[in-house]
Simulated scan of single mutants.
Amino acid sequence: MTRTVEERLQALEDRLDIIELEAAYARTFDEHDGDGWSALFTPDGTYQSRPVGDAPPVTFVQGTDALRAFCTQAPFDGIHFLHLPQLTFDGDTAQARVHLEFHGSYGQDAGAPRLALHGFYDVAYRRVDGRWLIAHRVTSAFSREQSTVLGYPKGSGLPA
């Protein structure tokens, strides 16, 4: 099937819009911008961790208000490193897998835990009023490492 120039242009614009959506996802979450982050989801949008076996997901958040609170009240600071999404489109819906690294900390004091997570997101998108939004996002971690901040000690440690 041959697509028109307009169809090809729309396909490129859709792909770029979702790439921009993913960039905004990482930035707004890392900045604890709950309003901005929750606005990237459909009103009934869901963020969840992938269940392990028969256990329920550790994290399951649905709806604008819950998403806003989850982001704003996150007990850690961190930074997302996202790879480009591998996208498939079907009209006004799309799906992607987005590989990620996340590095976070639970405070700056000695003894505060640090986290390094490697994994991927599986994401379902929906175009609503001409704008691509996240309908459902599932985090799958395949590596999670925790370490402890010891703090930088003052002085030499040698006897006076």
Rank of each mutant, 00 (worst) to 15 (best):
I134Q: 08
D35Q: 06
R3C: 03
T88S: 13
H118P: 00
L9C: 00
G91M: 11
A110N: 03
D109I: 01
L67D: 08
G155H: 08
I19D: 14
Q62H: 09
Y47T: 02
A26F: 07
T4F: 07
H83P: 03
T148V: 11
E20D: 15
E20F: 10
R50P: 00
P43C: 05
R126A: 15
F120S: 13
V52D: 10
L158N: 04
F89A: 06
G45F: 12
G119M: 11
V128N: 03
V123R: 12
A160V: 13
V98Y: 05
R15K: 04
P57R: 03
H118I: 06
G45L: 07
D14L: 07
V5M: 11
S105Y: 03
A96W: 04
P113S: 09
G151D: 03
P51H: 11
L100G: 13
E13L: 14
E145H: 11
P75E: 09
T42K: 05
G78L: 09
Q95P: 01
F120G: 10
D54W: 04
Q146C: 00
E20I: 11
F60A: 06
Y25F: 13
Q62G: 01
E101L: 14
A96I: 04
R68P: 02
E7T: 02
G157E: 10
H99E: 11
Y152V: 15
E22S: 07
P159M: 08
Y25R: 08
L117E: 06
P113V: 08
T148Q: 02
G151R: 09
T139P: 01
G36N: 03
R137G: 06
R8K: 10
P159Q: 07
V58N: 09
D30Y: 02
V5F: 13
G151W: 09
V128D: 10
Y125Q: 12
D44R: 09
S143Q: 13
E101Y: 14
L133C: 04
F70H: 15
C71P: 02
L115D: 00
H99G: 08
V123F: 08
A160D: 12
H103F: 15
L9T: 10
G36T: 09
R50K: 13
E101N: 15
A74P: 00
E145T: 14
R68I: 06
S38C: 12
A39G: 09
R3T: 12
A141E: 00
G36R: 04
I18E: 00
Q146S: 05
T2V: 11
A11G: 04
A23L: 03
G63T: 10
P75D: 05
V58H: 12
L158D: 07
E13M: 14
Q48E: 15
D122M: 03
E22A: 07
L9G: 00
A11I: 02
G45K: 12
R15A: 04
Q86V: 14
Y125W: 12
T42H: 08
S143P: 01
W37E: 02
Q146A: 01
P85D: 07
C71N: 07
G34S: 01
Y106A: 06
H118T: 07
F89G: 07
F102Y: 14
E31D: 14
H83D: 14
L82P: 06
V61A: 05
A135R: 15
Q62Y: 02
R144F: 01
A69I: 10
G36C: 05
C71Q: 06
G104Q: 02
P57L: 01
